[in-house]
């Protein structure tokens, strides 16, 4: 005997038509997001590529920033990012350790979590105001690399806390219990077991913040970044911590809005270098993350 065959009723046909339509519309929405990304990146690269070469990277801007390269801005950005993360990473990681390993559920942890969420939502320009009021004026640092980095550090702190918490959370409780059972104290457990098992996740979170810090403009505009500062071509450590510095993001802003008759390709080239650096760092972090996830032992 043949198995019974299904015949689609009009209702089922309508249902399936709607399903196909929904899939089509939704994938169109995704495309509408993804295509501009590729179109924009491609356009910037095409427009900026003629200017980009090794000499462009390692020489300084000349002729009122209409010619020359971007070395002083590039190094300035590296200074700001490195110092900001050197400050933010330890504080952020220890804060996450406190929230995940020490604190019990109480009004204090609720308050801290709320503060983390809100700190992440503070507009970057308000961070700039805070940096100006607290670091530049109140702490007397003046407009300097130090003041700008500290401002950036506070901005990245909540995201580092969140990603570290997630990494710590992924370490199974049984690891900790095993360690406690052989008589280790809480800190010994964290130092010998929890941190080594979550360090890759923590580092990925921090690296992802490199790109965010490098791209920020508003928080450094009034706390330490300047339009122009002369340094030696290709010098590796041209700035002191109390100096003001140039930064890539700020340089892009300056060249686009303040410098008249700069060559047309120049801002595109700066944008491509900034974007390239940011996306490269992010891609590295993402590749490392997926590699580590694939060989996870538990």
């Amino acid at each position: 005997m043949n198995p019974p065959t299904f015949t689609a009723t009009p209702h089922v046909l309508r249902k399936l038509r709607r399903e196909r339509l929904a899939a089509l519309v939704l994938s169109g929405m995704v495309l509408a997001m993804v295509l501009p990304l590729f179109a924009i990146v491609a356009y910037l690269v095409v427009k900026g590529a003629p200017l980009i070469n090794w000499a462009f990277l390692v020489t300084n801007p000349t002729d009122g920033m209409r010619a020359g390269g971007i070395w002083s801005a590039l190094v300035g950005t590296v200074y700001l990012v490195v110092i900001a993360l050197l400050v933010a990473a330890p504080i952020g990681v220890l804060c996450a350790v406190y929230l995940n390993e020490y604190a019990r559920e109480s009004w204090l942890t609720r308050l801290i979590n709320l503060a983390v969420v809100n700190l992440a939502g503070v507009p970057s320009i308000v961070h700039a105001l805070f940096g100006l009021g607290a670091f530049v004026l109140f702490a007397g640092l003046g407009r300097s690399i130090l003041a700008a980095s500290l401002t950036l550090a506070i901005m990245t702190l909540p995201v580092i806390i969140a990603s570290t918490k997630e990494a710590l959370n992924a370490v199974p409780l049984s690891f900790r219990e095993a360690c406690w059972n052989v008589g280790a104290s809480r800190w010994q457990t964290i130092w010998r077991v929890v941190l080594p098992n979550s360090i890759s996740g923590i580092l990925t979170g921090v690296i992802l913040q490199v790109s965010r810090t490098a791209g920020e403009t508003a928080p450094i505009m009034f706390t330490g970044a300047v339009f122009f500062k002369k340094v030696a071509d290709g010098a590796l450590f041209p700035y002191a911590l109390t100096d003001q510095c140039m930064a890539l993001s700020m340089h892009l802003y300056t060249v686009t809005t303040q410098v008249n008759n700069a060559p047309e390709a120049l801002p595109y080239a700066i944008a491509v270098v900034l974007l390239g650096a940011v996306l490269l760092v992010n891609a590295t972090a993402i590749i490392v993350r997926s590699y580590l996830r694939s060989r996870k032992k538990w």
């Binding site: 990304l37 924009i40 910037l44 965010r212 791209g215 920020e216 974007l275 940011v278 992010n282």
Partner: peptide, 23 residues
């Protein structure tokens, strides 16, 4: 797609501003 969206989130606001101004 998740990676692409993460990349979209990573584009700095100053670059968006430049895109608005030029493109």
């Amino acid at each position: 797609l998740k990676v692409v969206i993460e990349m979209l989130a990573a584009i700095p606001s100053i670059v968006w501003g430049f895109i608005g101004l030029s493109v």
